[in-house]
């Protein structure tokens, strides 16, 4: 066979793989296979420790906050936008929650959600009204509020009332997570909004010409997404009882990696599947717990996570629509 034939052959195979990866079924199944592979791999590497009952409990305990916050970002990414300010929002909302927890737990939850909504309004304003790409806007707000968190926690961590830890039961966390997941699922699959979100991700101009009020929906989703994260702050605080200067840091990256591992295209659109959230968060948590258990340092873990992230994005990105990241 000549070189030319060879390269034609290789290109043919490449095209086939590419085409397979673009099929909806690949997007639903491959992430699940990924989760299984990661789980099996670390079971072998840790001699079964990772699937011990104790560890599973610990693992699930870590899932809630990430799972809840990922829902909002899932909506945003479905529209083809990004949100890097989630970590700072989680931090700020946790601080607000802690401050208010002394008065009343419900008031504290509402306060955390409102704090989120305010930041979401700012994100939405600059992205929608000032037409600044969403990743730039949210990186700016990330730094802004990271600074505010550092300022508020300069002298000491912000403590919630001590009996807040009483709320830290599996029941509270599980029910909250499941309820929010369920609500989001219903919105995504059975409402006009769900169809609009995918349409905006698939084509913003086309959606506008089909009568979708793109600006309004985008702004609304930026607010809703951080309100959800505001609620996640409640779970976050009842687990630890206080917020330090690093509260919520790198959290936005965790969400992003989780969703992408779950099979969500970075450009969003019609390929977005609700299952991406659940598969992605579980995969990410197993991955980071596994890396931790085999004794890697935090730095090495981050390095490996970064490489995996890049690989998955490169494999799954829909090249036809890559220019439309907003």
């Amino acid at each position: 066979m000549t070189d030319l034939q060879n390269s034609v052959e290789i290109n043919g195979v490449k095209n086939k793989i590419q085409r397979y990866l673009e099929k909806p079924i690949a997007r639903s199944i491959l992430p699940v296979i990924g989760l299984v592979v990661v789980l099996v791999m670390f079971t072998m590497l840790t001699g079964g420790k990772i699937i011990s009952p104790l560890n599973i409990t610990l693992l699930l305990d870590e899932v809630y906050v990430l799972m809840i916050a990922s829902i909002g970002v899932f909506f945003i990414m479905t529209m083809g936008c990004l949100d890097f300010s989630q970590g700072s929002i989680l931090g700020i909302a946790s601080i607000v929650f802690s401050y208010l927890s002394g008065f009343n737990i419900l008031l504290a939850i509402v306060g955390a959600i409102i704090a989120g909504a305010i930041i979401g309004t700012i994100n939405g304003f600059f992205h929608v009204k000032r037409k600044i790409p969403s990743f730039i806007v949210t990186i700016c707000t990330m730094f802004l509020f990271r600074g505010l968190i550092a300022y508020l926690t300069t002298n000491s961590p912000v403590y919630a009332v001590s009996d807040i830890l009483n709320y830290n039961t599996v029941l509270v966390k599980l029910i909250s997570t499941v309820v929010i997941l369920l609500l989001a699922f219903l919105v995504f699959h059975f409402t006009k909004l769900g169809i609009y979100l995918k349409a905006i991700g698939a084509g913003e101009i086309g959606s506008r010409f089909a009568g979708v009020d793109v600006d309004k929906i985008k702004w609304l989703m930026y607010i809703v997404a951080v309100m959800i994260t505001g609620f996640a702050a409640f779970i976050n605080v009842i687990e630890v009882g206080s917020v330090t200067a690093s509260g919520g840091s790198m959290f936005e990256t965790e969400i992003l990696i989780a969703l992408v591992l779950g099979g969500l295209p970075i450009t969003g659109g019609v390929m977005a599947r609700f299952s991406n959230i659940i598969t992605g968060v579980l995969t990410y948590k197993v991955l980071s717990a596994g890396l931790n258990m085999i004794g890697l340092t935090t730095q090495t873990q981050q390095l490996i996570e970064g490489v995996i992230f890049l690989l998955v994005v490169a494999l799954f990105s829909d090249r036809k629509s890559l220019h439309i990241i907003k």
């Binding site: 698939a202 084509g203 086309g206 089909a210």
Partner: peptide, 16 residues
């Protein structure tokens, strides 16, 4: 770009 949302399904395009 304008008449259709080309990266969306036929179903969504007709129903939207």
């Amino acid at each position: 770009n304008e008449s259709l949302i080309v990266n969306d399904t036929i179903s969504d395009n007709i129903c939207i």
